[in-house]
Amino acid sequence: MIYGIFAGHSNFASNAVESAEKIIGTQDNYSIISNKDLSSEEIFGLLEEIINKNAKDTHFFIFIDFYGSSISLPSVRIKQMHDSRVNLLFGYNMPMILDFFIHRTNKSPFELSGKLIEVGRMGIR
């Protein structure tokens, strides 16, 4: 199982995932992070805590609302620490969230990453 971490400003991530669950049903093995009132170090600490708590999961996809947000740098640091176990996806949208939950058990992290970027782009018309 690939674990999902959805991060964003204010309630962006929680609302996005909640909306996805309205479409495909309740999911598990994921966490939500908001950067609200958190320092860069606190965001980094939260990401690290989630990964350590879910060490049984072999791979983690971290979704960040946009490249350049305050979550970006802590995420890059996490990627540097756990390189082969972590994928970063910046600028996620609803098609990507849906496909992540649908395909995370039947695709490799490499395949899934490519697919999510593809559906994310195709979803914009």
Binding site: H9, S39, S40, F66, G68, S69, S70, S72, L73
Partner: peptide
């Protein structure tokens, strides 16, 4: 800003 360069700034 202890987040330095981030969304609010950019």
């Amino acid at each position: 800003d202890d987040r330095l360069i981030h969304g609010q700034v950019i």
